[in-house]
Each structure stands twice: as structure tokens, then as C-alpha cells.
Amino acid sequence: MYLGLETTLGVLLLASALIALRLKNLLAAAVTLSVFSFISALIYLVMGAVDVAFTEAVVGAGITGVLFIVVLFHTSRRSID
């Protein structure tokens, strides 16, 4: 189908995963994880899984991001690595 589009989005997904792991500011890492979820929802949509893309967009980008940020406000926001 759209093999070129899938590969491009996959490279973007890898890049956002690496950025989320490398950032020392944990709040920025949580937001980058939301970006990661949105890109993975796009890949599911390109592959034709509409239900899974819908769930990932609602759950991964909405609720997981909110939970991450609330947890960071209750604990520490900096990481040393």
C-alpha cells in the first residue's frame, strides 16, 4: 500500500523514541512521549487499523500524558541521565 509513508513515519517514531529517552527534563520527555503516541496512531491509521488508531490517539496521547505529568508534579522533575 503506502510503503514509503509507513517507512518515513517509522523513522520519525524511532527519532521521537530516542529523544524521549535522552531528554534530562522529565516533563519534556513526557510531552515527547505524547508525540510518540500520536505518530504511532498515524502509522496504525496508514496500515488500516482505524479502531486501534482511535484508541491510541485517545488513550496514549490524552490519558497517559496527563498521568505522566501529574506523577512528575508529585515527584521530582529532573533526571540525571
Binding site: 529517552l21 513526557a30 502509522i43
Partner: peptide, 22 residues
């Protein structure tokens, strides 16, 4: 070494497995 970073890694791991199935 940070536990929140470990959870971020776990989320990435789960997404890769879901992506493989799709």
C-alpha cells in the same frame, strides 16, 4: 537509572509490540 525513564522505555516497548501485530 531514573524510574520514570524506565516507564517511558516500557511504553516504547509496548508500542513496538502492538505495531508488530498491526
Amino acid at each position: 537509572r531514573n524510574l520514570v525513564k524506565k516507564l517511558v522505555g516500557m511504553n516504547i516497548f509496548q508500542t513496538s509490540i502492538i505495531l508488530f501485530y498491526i
